[in-house]
Amino acid sequence: MPAPGSKLRLPALIALTTGPALVVGVGLWVLTELVPECRPDVRENLTSPDGAVTLVVFGLDCGATIGSNTQAAVHMSDELFSQETAQVFFAADGAHDLAPRWTAAGEIEITEPAGATVHRRLETIDEIPVTYR
């Protein structure tokens, strides 16, 4: 350690700052490789009768250790689908065919999978009634 009031030489300063930065960077890289990335798999897109809203059925595949799920959501038709901003109204463990459809009255109908563990099941979403068959 240099005496008080003396300056560190440039090579010593670079070594003292670069070493910890490399350790932190490598540590973060290793951690991101260990955490599975969940990717959305869009299975169906159905635009509402008035064209304003899109109903999306998608799943998140998070790898073998976490498994997959099935979700139903709505988003404005003039926006691209994003799992972060879509309004999810149904979510269940596993991959399922929800057979979604819009009624002539602009309501949503989906088939609730028998025996599935359901985590979210709303009766309305953004003032749109949802019927489960």
Rank of each mutant, 00 (worst) to 15 (best):
G25R: 02
V118D: 02
V42R: 05
V42M: 04
A114K: 12
L8Y: 13
L98V: 02
T111C: 00
G19L: 15
V53S: 03
Q87S: 14
H96Q: 05
T54R: 10
G94T: 10
C38Y: 09
G67E: 07
E79Y: 10
H75R: 06
T65Y: 00
A72I: 05
P100M: 06
D41P: 02
L98S: 01
R120I: 11
D61M: 00
S6V: 14
I14Q: 02
I108A: 02
P40E: 04
I66G: 00
P11H: 08
S68T: 15
M76R: 15
V88K: 12
S82Y: 05
T131I: 00
V74Y: 01
A64H: 08
R121E: 12
F81A: 09
G115V: 08
E127W: 07
T124I: 02
L13S: 11
A64I: 02
V35C: 00
I128D: 01
G5P: 06
D93P: 00
A21F: 13
R101W: 02
T47Q: 13
L122W: 05
L22C: 14
A86K: 00
A91M: 09
F90E: 04
A105N: 12
S77N: 15
N45C: 01
T103W: 07
P113Q: 09
S77Y: 04
A64S: 12
L22T: 07
V26P: 09
L122I: 03
R9F: 07
V24T: 12
A104C: 05
P2T: 14
V56H: 01
A64R: 12
V42A: 06
E84K: 15
A92Q: 05
T54E: 08
F81R: 10
L80E: 15
L46T: 09
F58S: 06
